[in-house]
Design a protein around this nucleic acid. Sequence first.
RNA 1: GCUCCGGUAGUGUAGUCCGGCCAAUCAUGUCGGCCUUUCGAGCCGAUGACUCGGGUUCGAAUCCCGGCCGGAGCACCA
Length: 497
Amino acid sequence: MKSQVQLDELEKIGGKIEEKKIEEKKLPELINVEGEVVLRFAPNPSGPLHIGHARAAILNHEYMKKYDGKLILRIEDTDPRRVDTGAYDMIEEDLKWLGVDWQDKIIQSDRIPIYYEYAEKLIKMGFAYMCTCKGAEFKKLKDLSNPCPCRDLETAENLRRWNDMENMPEGEAVLRVKTDLNHKNPAIRDWVAMRIVEYEHPRIGSQFKIYPMMNFSVAIDDHLLGITHVLRGKDHLANSEKQRYIYKHFGWDVPVFIHYGRLKMEDIQLSTSKARLGIKEGVYNGWDDPRLGTIRAIARRGITRAAIYNLMIEIGLKIADSTISWKKIYGLNRKVLEEAANRYFFVWDPSKVIIGNLPERSLGIIKRSMHPDFQDRGYRKIPFDGKVYLVDEDVKLHKYLRLMDAVNVYFKDKEAFFHSLSLEEARDVNAQIVHWVPAEDNLKAEVVMPDASVLKGLAEPSCADLKVDDVVQLERFGFARVDEVSEGKIRFYFAHK
RNA sequence: GCUCCGGUAGUGUAGUCCGGCCAAUCAUGUCGGCCUUUCGAGCCGAUGACUCGGGUUCGAAUCCCGGCCGGAGCACCA
């Protein structure tokens, strides 16, 4: 018997634990918050979103909610060669699946004239010049901190070249932003703002031939859209510095740049371009192949958005790189699924067993709860007539088996016989407790595993009532998402144990 | 090579700015126990980290210098 003092102490501890659970995982405050916080998620439409995009999307979305601010979806399609027309819709679908919503959407290819306008302003202000030097020659000069011959061109000549740019072939000229030729980092020196692209844009066609470089369009748009905080990967560190020159030249306020580290994912290092190639060559079944790190692949596997959200919030915006293990994701996902997932029997590697000596009283309809912790969800009915399929390994490895909620059997000369009925008796002989499926009344089932291999077996009859996207726990097997249900057949995608 | 940035348990993360309350947080994983008609969940317990070497200081995960390791950028991609 515990003393009152001990009980009080326990309650205190319990209370503390509760509190900690509630206050779990918060994002740090943003700096320089004055007025409305405006953020953007700005993917390049080269394919569907992957787990790396999810980080940017979720963090931006979380801050939008935290500060009751605004999130803008900006599609950055200023390189006609890197545009996949299917990606525009896929990006929005993926964001919707993630539960990320946005207030405004803009597509940069709709804004080309705006970039022209600001390019011209920059030329007139003397902060940009038209450079016709060969790339290699410019680099040589740049690396020595020397100006190229075009740098000191008169404004009038720059404007003449700028207006003539449309008549030049690709590679003939670029518009450069003046920065600092003595900048320590050669990459920052006089970077390219506009270039000629002779390639039909998949979305807007051939109406333009001059396209902005990302550093230019991004800086112009971030300012025009009133972006206050820019969250981006640390691979953009140098770009942020390049973009600062645009703000400086125009006299604009610079947003807060926040750079986070690289996200590495165990077993998945596939870039969008490699994935696309793999799909084209038939190595992968599509963008949602379970081996890929795309949002849709992860979703198809029964990973919940809540798990992805929690993961991204936990990782946060650290600039140091992070490696995510599947175990981490599974652990987070299991928390969500454990409560949500109803239980069903799936027998893989099925072995038919006919049980001898069955007493009449052991036959009938077996009822088993949908979820042991939530009896109010009701139960499934599984008819038991002595003829069942069991997992082959269970049959081979054990002398005594208890078929859950039905009977205890024993094997003699590879034949199965009735032993007893109660759980207690099963315990007395150390019977292995196993799941089973009726030999007659069942569904053909297959489970697509994370490596895309397919495990075939049989599922209990009530699986016929399942709907696509239901996530269930296949007892003694693991969590799986229902991918397709048809007459007498069901297909699952395996999530994890 | 040049420029910049990092390095806390297996993994993720807190703490680092403003040294002491840090013999370092929380989560996940792993192992063990209890419970249980699932290999799940829950509960209890265990496990395990400040990259290394100097320096400053009464005192360093925290500040300084150097090494090591890792990453990013160095495009007419984003």
